[in-house]
Design a binder for these strands. Structure first.
Lengths: 363, 363
DNA sequence: AATGTCTCCGTGAACGCTCACGTGAGCGGT
DNA sequence: ACCGCTCACGTGAGCGTTCACGGAGACATT
């Protein structure tokens, strides 16, 4: 039940080089051997830099025999061209930074897959950063980004991190810009449409006492919490009274969903449906509800958000609002490409991902 | 059921900037604006490079007023220091390459989490590459690695890719070196111990007709398939006759496991337990078995390998051999650090990860 | 008035590579 | 003997920074 929980209780004893463990000095750079340069190889083989360069880069205008001699020497001397020196002269090596909240949350690997694929098509490198949605980390990572990459594709929660990221001169694209940053290029996920479709589905099935399990991370962030507001809005539009205690904050994980569900049930056993912030929370909640003896969906229905594949594994399979996460990543890279190509931020076309209701069996 | 399957059937209609879609020219570099250099900023503000450098890098020996003036100008001009020029002069920026088979397979995000964390502790960057276990891609990625990073941490299946990777002068660490490359630094996962523990557990519970669902990727790779061999070995040691058709190749995914299980059942309905190559395959197999009316574990027991968190979601929760994947990633980075520190390959201490049997309910 | 000490700023060199040239040797054709 | 061409290789410059200096001016000290 610890899908997003790193400290898995059952994972123990990885024995690693018993006793020698201490041999790993955490941060001492030790005796870094100085770089072997192209000139050294040239000198050792009695040719010029340029000839070595030709050998290394598999170019023409070089005697095959000489090439082999140089290659052998380079290999023996431990020579490897410096990517910095190379990058300095050839301007076509592009690296983008992908900033995500948590690799362990299955949402992000899917986005990453899209980004990786789109980047590979262009021959770009992708460096990945994890923030854990912590404000401090987000700010830190944004700083790194400016130094290390040519463009940023990021999932950022905290508005000051977003502000910092977009203030600089770095081409920057937001994954899920969620209404909060209209001027910034990025992809918008239409939560409004999604939440509306989902809730109206529940309401249409006769549900009135619909609880909401919200992501607690949004409480600390100063971002507008659209999913929660939308819940209140849609419920209001249908004239359904909402008990404010139906809304429970949950940690963004399966365990978090379970805990929140337990809190909810202890106070409001009478809810007939749960609308969760995302699938992870929904799954945890549903699992816990079943463990506590509730039948799903008869006693309580569950509706998730994100459309994670793992929603198909639980019993009953989770009904959810599916987001095409892979496409999300791809579009973000496409936008980054436009930015890199010289397009100004406000010329970037609007990108919207529309969540689709997938009715499985939990609601 | 498509956890490792990118083309999710239910994911449709992501409308993106209707009609404008064509605006994204796939690979045309368009009019890339030339880089603004430090000298241009210097000239524009009437100071020298060095003073601009001081302003940008927040150093002393500069009038606060001048600094602000420069900073403003730099911002306005769209100046951003070149990471290449910087890296060339300061030798302390390290980037490692992480090569994995498939981000969508939950095994790898966990490894990635460990790598990311360990790298961050050292202030290293991590660029991620996906191979899909394809030979062509693996070879391609290894080539990239040489150009782009200071050290490689990789999961490689094909022995020629491994050979290529270790032949060069790049510090290189194998995630799961699985016996096949004794000289290469890397982490060994003790499959023998794990498989033995798992199989003996099954045998101890009275199972005799134990099938094996193997990863088909190993059939094309020329790597020794240890899990399969171990299965034969351990069964042999216990004097249990094995029908060779009990071994079914499966695509490394939930769907693959399901399909393989169906094939297995059509030929050998009498098996009482299934030992899967990994959890993904085990989950798919178990799901399909239940869908076909079998009771788990009464009619057929299931044993996985990897200890994925999602194994806890299925019904009944999957019994498995848990691998501490996060630690795996961490150790690999530690080894890379040693290599980078100048330690020779054969001085790297042996690293072994010991799979732990987690008995849940499927076996 | 001469000397010392700050503070602020500039200059040359170096980092390791590739690109656009230049060069000399060898060879065939006229 | 001359020209022209090809092949193999070398030279100078430049990519955009930072580092180790050096130096001018302001101000206080002797």
């Amino acid at each position: 039940m610890a899908l997003a929980d790193p400290s898995h209780p059952t994972c123990t004893a990885a024995r690693y080089a018993e006793g020698v463990q201490g041999g790993y000095s955490p941060n001492v750079p030790t005796n870094r051997k100085p770089r072997v340069t192209i000139d050294q190889v040239a000198q050792a083989t009695g040719v010029s830099r340029q000839t070595v360069s030709r050998a290394i880069n598999n170019k023409t205008e070089i005697d095959p025999e000489t090439r082999q001699r140089i290659l052998d020497a380079a290999q023996a001397m431990g020579y490897r061209p410096s990517r910095f020196a190379r990058g300095l002269v050839r301007q076509d090596l592009i690296t983008i930074g992908l900033v995500i909240a948590d690799v362990l949350n299955p949402f992000f690997p899917e986005v990453t897959a899209g980004v990786l694929e789109a980047a590979e098509r262009r021959g770009w490198q992708v460096v990945v950063y994890n923030t854990g949605s912590e404000r401090r980390k987000e700010l830190e990572v944004v700083d790194m980004l400016f130094d290390q990459v040519d463009a940023g594709v990021a999932f950022l929660l905290h508005h000051d991190a977003i502000a910092k990221a977009t203030a600089g001169n770095l081409p920057f694209v937001l994954l899920d810009k969620g209404g909060r940053a209209p001027a910034v290029p990025g992809v918008r996920i239409d939560f409004e449409g999604g939440a509306r479709r989902g809730l109206e589905y529940l309401i249409g099935r006769g549900h009135r006492r619909i609880a909401m399990l919200d992501d607690e991370a949004y409480l600390s962030a100063e971002a507008p919490n659209t999913r929660r507001e939308l819940y209140l809005k849609v419920m209001g539009e249908h004239g359904i009274p909402v008990d404010i205690n139906w809304i429970q904050p949950a940690h963004n994980s399966i365990d978090g969903g379970a805990a929140a569900m337990e809190r909810l049930l202890s106070a409001h056993r009478d809810v007939t449906a749960v609308f969760a912030y995302n699938d992870l929370i929904a799954i945890g909640a549903q699992l816990r509800a079943r463990a506590l003896g509730l039948r799903v969906p008869e006693d309580c229905a569950f509706l998730g958000f994100d459309g994670l594949s793992i929603g198909e594994l639980v019993e009953p399979p989770l009904t959810t609002l599916h987001i095409d996460k892979r496409r999300l990543g791809e579009i973000a890279v496409e936008q980054a490409a436009l930015l890199l190509g010289g397009m100004s931020e406000d010329e970037i076309p609007e990108a919207v991902i529309e969540p689709q209701l997938i009715v499985r069996a939990s609601a």
